[in-house]
């Protein structure tokens, strides 16, 4: 009898653990839906009040209860694109260097350093941006660019250092590890046989990389760039600290601007009336929507190459 009771207790225990884990798993999905719903429902007031004009209006004036998100959307997109232009080629190069070229000791050290880059908190990047990067940009880099490339509207204007260019550079440093690590993941998934096939045909190392590795993993690499972009769009502190926080739209990268995450960070707790708060949250909703779509698309790309939606094999 006692073994029967024991067995009953055990099978109860089995069920409890099973259903607790199931519940937690479902909770993750609910959490995601709930985040979206919270953002959506809390922005209703602003959505009702401004409609689509919220996205196209350039005015952000809490005193007169007028809110438009365009300058923030613009600042976010420009800084992120600058970051991508810098970080994508470098990040992919690092991935190639690590996976295809470096001897194992160097690979370990450099891979660790790149991961370290990802481990540094964004507020420290911001601090460094304020006191080191911005002065350097203002005093030497930006004047030099204006002198030689000033005919391009992007590089016109008086250098301030706290601008979209600085924001883009900080973001580039921060998203590089994302691009590198995910590119490495997809490149590592290229079967060795592909590489050997190219080498056996007499390809040089670069030709092997181009023909076997890059062509095989290009959609996954694109996914890694998109994930980097997603990270850049949502990055808050470092950008807040170097972008200058001025809601204006200028063609010059050397102009102060504002980003979506930055305006939320600065004004969310200071929003004194409900329309103001709702407008802050609607900016969050836009940010959430963009990063969500970007992530879904990017993950599908990466999954199709490296991981696959399956849980892996049994044995």
């Amino acid at each position: 009898m006692s073994t029967d009771n024991n067995r009953l207790y055990e099978s109860m225990g089995d069920k409890v653990l099973r259903y607790v884990t199931l519940l937690m798993a479902i909770l993750v999905v609910i959490l995601m839906i709930w985040i979206g719903w919270q953002m959506f429902s809390s922005s209703q007031e602003s959505i009702q009040h401004f409609g689509w004009a919220f996205i196209t209006s350039r005015v952000w004036d809490p005193v007169h209860h007028i809110f438009g998100a365009l300058p923030f959307i613009y600042g976010t997109i420009v800084t992120s694109v600058v970051a991508l232009i810098i970080a994508a080629p470098i990040g992919i190069s690092v991935a190639i260097f690590l996976n295809e070229m470096a001897p194992s000791t160097i690979r370990k050290v450099v891979a660790f350093l790149v991961e370290l880059l990802a481990a540094i908190p964004s507020v420290v990047y911001g601090l460094w941006g304020i006191f080191v990067l911005a002065p350097v940009l203002r005093q030497s880099v930006e004047p030099w660019l204006t002198k030689w490339f000033g005919f391009i509207p992007w590089f016109k204007g008086a250098p301030v250092g706290f601008d979209m260019f600085g924001g883009g550079i900080i973001l580039a440093i921060m998203i590089l590890p994302t691009i590198t690590s995910i590119s490495r993941e997809v490149m590592a998934a290229v079967p060795t046989a592909h590489r050997e096939a190219a080498l056996a045909l007499g390809a040089t190392k670069w030709e092997m990389i181009r023909l076997s590795v890059l062509s095989y993993s290009k959609s996954g690499i694109l996914g890694s760039i998109m994930l980097g972009l997603g990270r850049a769009l949502g990055e808050t502190m470092a950008v807040t600290m170097v972008i200058g926080n001025m809601p204006k739209i200028s063609s010059s990268l050397f102009s102060s601007a504002y980003s979506m995450a930055a305006v939320i960070a600065n004004e969310f707790t200071e929003a004194t009336y409900s329309l103001y708060l709702s407008s802050c949250i609607e900016i969050g909703l836009i940010l959430f929507g963009i990063t969500l779509l970007l992530n879904i698309f990017a993950r599908l790309l990466v999954w199709s190459v490296a991981r696959g939606p399956k849980g892996g094999h049994l044995v």
Partner: peptide, 15 residues
């Protein structure tokens, strides 16, 4: 769940 988990890591922390 796996997919949601991956996507959740990409949601900006400020959200």
């Amino acid at each position: 769940v796996r997919f949601t988990t991956d996507v959740l890591t990409g949601i900006p922390s400020i959200i």
